[in-house]
Computed example of a mutant assay.
Amino acid sequence: MEKIIKIGLAILFFLCLLDMPYGFFELVRFIALLGFGFLAFKANEKGDARETIIYAALALLFQPFFKIALGRGLWNILDVIVGITLVLSVFKKK
């Protein structure tokens, strides 16, 4: 389940690089909040404090309620970095 969420979030972040309507970005932020919240919860269940903090921080960064104005260019860079990191985390061995 976690791998599916990571791949799904990565795809959404890569789609954010395209010229999409503003509502799409709002939807991605809401889905990212839910996805990263779930990943933080699962990491906490496993006792992995580092991943819990990372996923919780990403949930706060992407949450749609109190927007963080970083500009389109910086958001695109963040989308690529987070998307690539999520894809790589699917393939890493524990």
Rank of each mutant, 00 (worst) to 15 (best):
M1V: 10
E2C: 10
K3C: 13
K3I: 06
I5S: 08
K6S: 07
I7F: 11
I7Q: 01
I7N: 00
I7T: 07
L9W: 00
L9I: 11
A10K: 05
A10Q: 02
I11P: 06
I11R: 03
L12R: 05
L12W: 02
F13A: 01
L15Y: 02
L15Q: 02
L15P: 03
C16S: 10
L17P: 14
L18H: 09
L18T: 11
L18K: 11
D19N: 15
P21F: 04
P21M: 04
P21I: 01
Y22N: 12
Y22H: 10
Y22F: 12
Y22R: 10
Y22W: 11
G23I: 06
G23V: 09
F24N: 05
F24G: 08
F25T: 00
E26T: 13
L27Y: 05
V28L: 05
R29Y: 07
F30H: 02
I31L: 11
A32H: 02
L34S: 10
G35K: 04
G35Y: 00
G37A: 01
G37C: 04
G37Q: 00
F38A: 09
F38D: 02
F38M: 03
A40H: 00
A40K: 01
F41H: 03
K42A: 12
N44S: 15
K46E: 13
K46N: 08
G47A: 13
G47Y: 14
G47N: 07
A49Q: 08
A49R: 13
R50K: 15
R50T: 14
E51K: 13
E51C: 05
I53D: 04
I53R: 11
I54E: 07
A56L: 15
A56S: 15
A57D: 02
A57N: 02
A57I: 04
L58T: 00
L58A: 03
A59C: 05
L60D: 00
L60T: 03
L61T: 03
L61N: 01
Q63H: 11
Q63P: 07
Q63K: 05
F65Y: 10
F66E: 12
F66C: 07
K67F: 13
I68T: 08
I68N: 08
A69K: 08
A69L: 12
R72H: 10
G73T: 09
G73I: 02
G73M: 06
L74D: 02
W75H: 09
W75G: 00
N76F: 07
I77G: 06
D79L: 04
V80H: 03
I81E: 03
I84F: 01
I84M: 05
T85I: 04
V87T: 07
V87E: 00
V87C: 12
L88N: 09
L88Y: 09
V90K: 00
V90C: 11
K92I: 10
K92S: 12
K92P: 13
K94C: 04
K94S: 14
K94A: 13
